[in-house]
């Protein structure tokens, strides 16, 4: 019963800190994200936005604070002993992630990239996993590439396969780490379209991006980060048309030119 009470929010972050040695990357982040919400994180490079995203599924281990995802504690500074009991693999399997460099496995075909985790982590029947993968590949527009190796695909196609691979685990939340930054400009559109469709289906999404157009059109909320803190947040219309802080004004001036 307690669980349902907590489960109102997809992601809860309190006082999150992360440092590498003496260098502080995140200096106290507080952020709550609701189910079905699309949040875009923007900010200059080195502002800590990718680190924030990678803390959510513990690809980076935080230095302090607490994180809970989908109603479950992922990291808690207070109860360090609890952190060992956390089944991070189980939580990760409920949170999809898409990387800047796609990170498709080159030695596996498109189909095998998509069904690998369902077979291995979810122990699904192969037929069932393949059926699901075919649906997803159709969704991202790549049904005809199921037997190809990633090296024969364009960057945009690879990124769409990567999205299908993440969706194959039926994630409750999707994390996107600059998904279009490594793409040639003419290939960005196809990837953004897939993401837009996903948003309109009600997926909870956290997107680190430099695509201001996408952020404005699709996001429910924009987070602007700089130097390890959230400087400003709000609805896109408000944030873009009426930035309050000097830092955001400066940032928007540099990216919207």
């Amino acid at each position: 019963m307690v669980e349902t009470a907590i489960k109102t929010q997809a992601i809860q972050i309190k006082e999150l800190r992360k440092s590498y040695g003496a260098q502080e990357i995140l200096t106290g982040i507080d952020l709550n994200i609701n189910y079905g919400e699309v949040v875009c994180v923007i900010g200059p490079s080195g502002s800590g936005k990718s680190t924030l995203l990678r803390c959510l599924n513990l690809l980076e281990v935080p230095s302090g604070g607490t994180i809970s995802v989908d109603g479950e504690a992922v990291f808690s500074q207070q109860n360090k002993s609890d952190n060992k009991k956390i089944n991070i693999q189980e939580i990760r399997s409920r949170v999809g992630m898409v990387f800047q460099q796609f990170n498709l496995w080159p030695h596996k075909t498109v189909l095998n990239n998509v069904i690998e985790a369902p077979l291995l982590v979810r122990k699904q029947e192969k037929a069932q996993a393949v059926e699901k993968a075919e649906v997803l590949l159709r969704k991202v527009g790549l049904s005809d590439k199921r037997s190809s190796y990633p090296s024969s695909l364009s960057g945009g196609q690879q990124q769409r396969v990567a999205i299908a691979r993440a969706l194959a685990m039926d994630p409750k939340i999707m994390l996107f780490d600059e998904p279009t930054s490594a793409l040639d400009p003419e290939l960005v559109g196809d990837v953004l379209k897939v993401m837009k469709d996903l948003a309109s289906e009600g997926m909870t999404m956290v997107v680190v991006t430099h695509e201001m157009g996408f952020a404005r059109d699709v996001a429910d909320r924009i987070i602007f980060m700089d130097q390890g803190v959230i400087v400003e947040e709000g609805a896109p219309s408000e944030l873009f048309s009426n930035p309050k802080s000097a830092r955001l004004r400066q940032f928007l001036a540099s990216v919207l030119d």
Binding site: F99, P106, A166
Partner: peptide, 26 residues
Amino acid sequence: HKGQAEAARALGMGEKSILYRIVIPQ
């Protein structure tokens, strides 16, 4: 490339399967 293991980790795969199914074949 370390992104290879990271992608597998993000999908909930265990370190052992990552080594045998993702890293060693490559």
